[in-house]
C-alpha cells in the first residue's frame, strides 16, 4: 500500500513523497515505514510510543483514531495512508 508523506517529513524519507509498504494492518504499515526510515519515528511518536497529538493518520478518507479497529484495521494494496500534521492557530 502507499503511504503519503507530508512535505515537512520528506527530509526523513529521502525526499520521497510516497513510500510503498506491504502490510496487513495500519499499524503494520506504520511500523514498516519507520523501519525503512527510522529518523521519522521521533517526529511521529512520543517517547511513550503514542502518535503525537498533532499527527493525524488517515486511511483513505477516514481518521484512523476513529476507526473501530484503529491501528489493527486490515488494509489492502489498494488502500492509501496519509500522514497529516494538523493546521491551526489564531491571534
Amino acid at each position: 500500500m502507499k503511504i503519503h508523506i507530508p512535505t515537512p517529513l520528506r527530509v526523513y524519507t529521502g525526499n520521497q513523497d510516497t513510500v510503498v509498504v506491504e502490510a496487513k494492518t495500519v499499524g503494520d504499515a506504520l511500523q514498516q515505514l519507520t523501519g525503512q526510515h527510522p529518523d521519522l519515528k521521533k517526529h511521529l511518536y512520543t517517547e511513550e510510543g503514542k502518535l503525537r497529538s498533532f499527527v493525524n493518520v488517515y486511511l483513505n478518507d477516514e481518521d484512523v483514531r476513529y476507526l473501530p479497529e484503529k491501528e489493527t484495521t486490515v488494509v489492502t494494496d489498494a488502500d492509501a495512508l496519509s500522514i497529516i500534521p494538523s493546521i491551526a492557530g489564531g491571534d
Partner: peptide, 16 residues
C-alpha cells in the same frame, strides 16, 4: 504570528 500560531504550526519548511 501569535504564540498560538507558533504552538500549532507543525509544517516545517512551509509558509504561514
Amino acid at each position: 504570528w501569535s504564540s498560538t500560531d507558533l504552538a500549532e504550526a507543525h509544517w516545517l519548511g512551509c509558509s504561514y
